[in-house]
Design a protein around this nucleic acid. Structure first.
Lengths: 224, 224
DNA sequence: CTACAGCGCCGTACACCGTATCGAAGTTGA
DNA sequence: TCAACTTCGATACGGTGTACGGCGCTGTAG
């Protein structure tokens, strides 16, 4: 038997002979379905139907539904890569990386749902981590410091996307606030009372700079 | 009919007459179950069994399973409140808030999964937002600026918790890396090659300070 | 050319899920 | 005592993931 338990098939098992269905088709169909109708629409039966195949046929190409999900996330992670070459300026490089991630999460909300259900690290996730690490070479940090700095950006980006996607437009919050007694929530009422000045995207922009400021203060000694 | 669509029962509907089962018991049982066996163990049938009741009886006290989930999250949010009084120092106040949230997320991993499936804002979530807003009064910010600053802390905290909970101990990442060709991922290999110096909690501490630094630089003009 | 091994495909079945429907039983106020 | 109302519950429907085992094709060995 193989080395470890984590042999979970990132690589196409083997193409056997003349193949009808392929793993790539299955994953792509699942991705399309998730984009179009949300993650809960992605069922084995439904994906099979979309492919004009029978449910159990999918299991020839994937080990389980969890596997399919991991494969979907891996594919998605690949699309998070930013076109090379990265700018030399680490702030600009991180800006691009964060922007691309944020835009992608919001455009494909099922991803953050999927991430919450336990993540298996695929090759594309590794590639992305490597690209991010390359973005901050000019800071000349210890590897573990670099990892911390990058984590902050990635984690905030993900957290922000989660917030945006789940509390759509804060409409939920505003609605609740309208029904409540303003004197119970004086400060919150003021926040939303004066008409949500900034747009979502503007908030992202500002907050990203704040996060980058924090990193700059701590980690950029003399580096450009 | 009532005012709006968002009439979803945060308040016990009415205690009717002599009640056997109560909504509180249902929610508490579901919480216990989620803590003990994860969110996927929380099914209507299972909760009913735990209460020695029949599945359909639960629907006397909750409108749907989604409702139950929202109620669980609301209850959880209540426990995120930090004991008053808050420190005058805004950094220390935010530290406490973030710490409590992070610890709670990690101790109850089902919460971040639940947040990903769409959040309904309950009264306790509002209370928590209000408390957070109170933490930064000394900065004397515009309400919308305060909201942005607080969002950064909350969103990073959540993102960090998500990262910690889903990629347990980065073991996943390290494992993948061991199998890969180091020359494909030179920087990542260095990060994990030298033995993960910092502990999880140390990383949280450092990263939190970095985030607070960013906020301080942008929003703390002369305030203490 | 025939035989066979292996593999992709898939029909059936099982255990579980959320919940609609509707009737039974019990409690309470008049 | 009667009527109103609420809680409880049995049954059933349409969905889920997937274990099991058979069928038929195809590439290769004899």
């Amino acid at each position: 038997m193989p080395n470890r338990a984590s042999e979970l098939a990132w690589d196409e098992p083997k193409t056997g002979t003349a193949a009808g269905l392929t793993r790539g088709q299955v994953v792509q169909t699942a991705l399309d379905l998730a984009d179009a109708e949300g993650l809960e629409a992605v069922s084995i039966r439904r994906v099979a139907q979309e492919l004009d195949a029978r449910p159990m046929s999918l299991y020839t190409h994937i080990a389980s539904k969890d596997d399919l999900l991991a494969l979907m996330l891996n594919e998605f992670s690949g699309r998070l890569l930013v076109p090379e070459p990265l700018p030399d300026d680490w702030r600009e490089a991180l800006r691009r990386i964060a922007h691309r991630a944020y835009d992608s999460y919001v455009a494909h909300p099922w991803t953050i749902q999927a991430f919450g259900r336990g993540t298996r690290v695929g090759p594309n996730m590794l590639r992305r981590a490597e690209q991010s690490a390359a973005a901050v070479v000019s800071l000349e940090l210890e590897p573990s410091e670099a990892w911390t700095a990058l984590s902050i950006v990635h984690e905030w980006t993900m957290g922000h996307a989660l917030h945006v996607v789940t509390l759509r437009e804060d409409a939920e919050l505003e609605g609740r606030l309208r029904d409540a007694d303003p004197s119970d929530f004086p400060r919150m009422s003021r926040v939303f009372g004066e008409g949500r000045a900034q747009s979502r995207d503007a908030v992202f922009e500002v907050a990203l700079e704040v996060v980058l400021d924090g990193i700059e203060r701590r980690y950029a000694s003399g580096a450009r």
